[in-house]
Amino acid sequence: MTKEAMTERAAALTVRQVSVRIDGKDLVRDVTLEVPSGEVLGLAGPNGAGKSTLLRTLYRAQRPTSGQVLLDGYDVWRMPGRWLARRLAAVLQESGGDFELSVYDVVAMGRTPHKRAFDGDAPDDRAIIADALERLDVADLAYAPFDRLSGGEKQRVLIARALAQRPGTMVLDEPTNHLDLRHQLDALRLVRGLGVTAVIALHDLNLAAAFCDRICVMHAGEVVALGTPHEVLTPALFRDVYRVDAEVSAHPRTGIPHVTLTTGGSHPMT
């Protein structure tokens, strides 16, 4: 299938002065972002920085205390859920529950926004589902029970479900969690190659540098850095935000910034 056949049209995503306050605590404070159509934005920061909370406002799991989230100019909180589900897919950190369903059935759930109630899978649906299973290397697990899978296999199935949704925009919260090195690279290459607008929370900043157009770093609920990997990934950022010492150099083959953490001894950590 062509890239165009596998996705809805990529949309511009705007976060306008979004704040989230829960139980008297500010989790996100006055965040403003513009993610142009087709851009892949990496979202980084230490634990508790507000990344997951901000992402939840994008796919309508957490209503902002103030501010707006716009998809191509439409306030996602004012549009019907079905409208959003046809345009935006979310892949979360948690497995989504131990579904008593087969892998095929879980991935097929991604087609639901595009069908009427009680419709079965049309030939086009089955082709999209099969393609998603193949792209995430889980076709051989299609009829295995989802709740019997390993954490990494579940994560690949959930990414396949999002792909089957044919979104123009994807929100992914630590999608490489539980994945081995090969499948981490495969998953990020896939998202990068779809041509969708994507916001991806990643702890691994070397992966963020390799696959994201820009990186947004959050700390204590606020955006503290936003720009290209070359602009954002600096020793000062690691010292001020992460409280670690790091060296940042250009990868000898790609020229992409490469982060090496220093442990304080003679052995660096990459």
Rank of each mutant, 00 (worst) to 15 (best):
G255C: 02
L55I: 06
P229F: 09
T57V: 10
A208H: 04
M269T: 15
R161H: 10
D180Q: 05
A10I: 06
L194Y: 11
G255K: 02
V196Y: 07
R126I: 11
P268D: 08
R78Q: 15
R56T: 03
R9T: 14
D98I: 05
T234Q: 07
G110T: 06
A11R: 08
Q93P: 08
T7H: 13
G96Q: 11
R192D: 08
I159D: 01
Y143N: 15
L202H: 08
G67T: 04
H219E: 08
R111M: 01
G38H: 04
T263M: 15
Y59Q: 02
Q62A: 10
A127S: 13
V40Y: 08
N47E: 02
D186G: 13
V40T: 14
T254Y: 00
L13P: 02
L202M: 12
G38T: 05
R21G: 02
A10S: 14
L27A: 01
E39I: 01
I159T: 04
S19M: 12
R156F: 02
G151C: 02
A142M: 09
D98A: 13
V76N: 00
L92Q: 15
A187F: 10
R60F: 11
E94Y: 13
V199C: 09
S95H: 14
A12T: 13
L92K: 14
C212K: 02
S19V: 10
R16V: 09
L136Y: 10
M79L: 08
R78M: 09
Q93F: 05
L101S: 10
L41D: 03
A90R: 03
R135E: 11
D137T: 09
E231P: 00
L185N: 11
F99N: 05
F99T: 05
E174F: 01
L141K: 06
V35T: 02
A61C: 15
V217N: 00
V91P: 05
E153V: 01
Q62P: 08
A10Q: 10
H203Y: 12
K3L: 14
Q184Y: 06
V138N: 00
L136M: 15
L207D: 01
A246G: 12
G73H: 03
Q155W: 05
D213E: 13
A164I: 03
V91R: 12
R166H: 04
T112K: 12
L158W: 09
A61M: 15
P252C: 08
L70R: 05
D204T: 07
Q93M: 06
G120Y: 04
L58Y: 04
R111D: 00
S249G: 13
I256T: 15
L141R: 04
P113A: 03
V191C: 09
H178T: 01
A12E: 15
T65N: 08
D186C: 12
T263W: 11
I256Y: 03
S249F: 14
L261V: 14
E134W: 10
A10F: 04
H203V: 11
R192F: 08
D245P: 06
